[in-house]
Amino acid sequence: MGAAPNDNTGKKGISRQFMYLLTVLAILLPLVFPVGMPVSVTPWVEKGYQHVEKLNPGDKVLISFDYSASGAADIHPAAEAIFKHLMDKDVKVITVAFVAEGNRFPGMLMSAWEEQGKVYGEDFIHLGFLSGHETGLAALFADIPGAAPVDSRGNPVTSYPIMDGVKTVADCKMFIGLSGGNPGPQQYVRQLEPYQGVEIFTACTAAIAPTVEPYLASGQIVGLVGGLKGAAEYETVMGYAGKASANMDAQSFAHLLVIGFIVAGNIIHFTSKKNEGN
């Protein structure tokens, strides 16, 4: 790999191998020796939690698992926390995936809850993968049994008690979009606009979380869980420490390391520039 013209790595700076070693240590050591720093809860995670908390037992919620394996580290802990919250409140959950790789995640969560006594088809159902991204969203919202006639287990969706009275997304109290990109919050807001009674709550990667801010301010999205930090906040507000909280120390030290490298890079750059001037 060739070095950039203003590259500080190498003889004049810090070697790439040393930087990689520090990165590995900054992530690995907090995982092995956790510090357990408290996580403060940001307003949009708190608001999302409060909206889920207001749901009554028996209310129906539609969750879309729109992230792939590569986004799982960032979003799946949030999915676990939100799913646990819904199960604790006896809310009925209908899941779907508009990203092919996301199709596996609802099954992972459901099998764990089935071992704890929840019943597939009564407490939750997975409609499977629906292609077409935003077109798929629009079609499902308009006619759920029409767009997804059979569930992930190959049975007619109308044969399950959870689907009684569910025709469109308007029959659900809330839509929760777990997104790693497209479809994402923008697509959810666009396609749910005609169904005014359905609240939108989203969890997404930290990278796309900043794009959700305008929708939060306008009230079109009621809550946001952004990345692993957001998931740790959701676990905190729920009063338990899950996977996200366990990984927060590693993320904290990784952030500090990045800032340390930014500062070191600037110091070396401006010092060498000053020396060249002299």
């Binding site: 203003n6 500080n8 990689y20 799982a72 790789e101 800032i259 890079g265 750059h269």
Partner: peptide, 21 residues
Amino acid sequence: GVTFVSMNMFYLVTAAFRAFR
């Protein structure tokens, strides 16, 4: 998939050191 994305961290630290001026 998770490993592939995690590799970005190494590019991120070198980019932070080299490019963020």
